[in-house]
């Protein structure tokens, strides 16, 4: 049997600060975000990012948490017992064996976004693998209004994966390909991913190119997310975290629909949760918790 290509796959990696000497640090805190699709571990030394990893979540949360922290600590000389406080977050947050505390990903994403994009950020949109969160926060990254949609696959990375598989297109290429069309098509009308799939097949049969279908799906997703954001309202500045933040097919269409540009950050959008968790860990460490 020919090996099946997995079009939804993305690349794992880890990063460490090139100069920082953690042994000089006073406070070492970490955050572990075990999501439904990806897991991240991030280590802060005196409140500065020292190292992180971004990996796929395995079938078991404790293993994924260990893999993530081992990935972040790889070749740094730091050991797990050098970390003084760890906060777990995400879908598998209660299954992080070495965590001192679990904190919801809503609170962590807001805090992480505040660090990544600055204290002027008021609206955070997290488009994750199996959920979508809209958050308002204050200048310290404290949540003032939020909603989370984790019931329905529409508007989540999972919905995009279904489309990638259906059309046999690698997920990282979807955004760019969705702009290779002569004109922007009408969005796919079905919200439900199951019905959108049938609709996409129907569009292909009626002669649409794959890129047209991708454009129609990306714009449907952007529209859906903008409606969800409408529940809490969008206040400047606006920041997007999570895996779909890397898909310009959705992000640029969303910006156009909302009439607002998302703040760009030098950091990987997928680390926001782990970063927020690590920042809480650092705060709790300072408080002597």
């Amino acid at each position: 049997m020919a090996e099946m290509q997995e079009f939804w796959r993305w690349t794992e990696y880890n990063w460490r600060h090139p100069e920082m000497d953690w042994r000089q640090g006073k406070r070492i805190a970490s955050g572990i975000d075990v999501g439904s699709v990806s897991s991240q571990a991030l280590v802060l030394v005196d409140g500065q990012i020292f190292a992180f990893s971004n990996l796929r979540t395995g079938s078991n949360s404790p293993d994924s948490a260990h893999k993530a922290i081992n990935g972040a600590l790889k070749d740094t000389g730091m050991e797990l017992n050098n970390i003084k406080y760890t906060v777990g977050t995400g879908y598998g947050r209660v299954n992080v064996p070495f965590a001192n505390r679990a904190i919801t990903e809503i609170a962590c994403h807001a805090r992480g976004a505040n660090f990544m994009a600055g204290p002027k950020v008021r609206t955070v949109l997290d488009m994750g693998g199996q959920d979508c969160k809209a958050i308002h926060c204050d200048e310290r990254g404290k949540v003032s209004n939020f909603l989370m949609n984790d019931k329905c696959a529409a508007g989540t990375g999972r919905g995009m994966e279904v489309m990638a598989d259906l059309l046999s297109i690698p997920i990282k290429d979807i955004g760019d390909l969705s702009y290779q069309v002569d004109q922007e098509p009408q969005p796919v009308s079905s919200t439900c991913v199951v019905f959108a799939k049938s609709e996409a097949l129907g569009l292909m049969r009626s002669g649409w190119s794959k890129n047209m279908v991708l454009a129609a799906y990306c714009s449907a997703m952007a529209h859906r997310v903008s409606l969800l954001l409408g529940r809490i309202g969008v206040e400047d500045q606006f920041f997007i975290t999570g895996g779909i933040a890397k898909n310009p097919g959705v992000v640029k269409r969303l910006e156009k629909e909302l009439g607002i540009q998302a703040v760009k950050s030098q950091y990987d959008s997928q680390i926001a949760g782990a970063l927020g968790a690590a920042l809480f860990a650092d705060t709790l460490l300072q408080k002597g918790a």
Partner: peptide, 16 residues
């Protein structure tokens, strides 16, 4: 803080 619990799907928006 306003906490919105619930969801939105194809059939509508349901939040407490």
């Amino acid at each position: 803080m306003i906490a919105n619990y619930g969801y939105k799907d194809g059939s509508g928006e349901f939040f407490i």
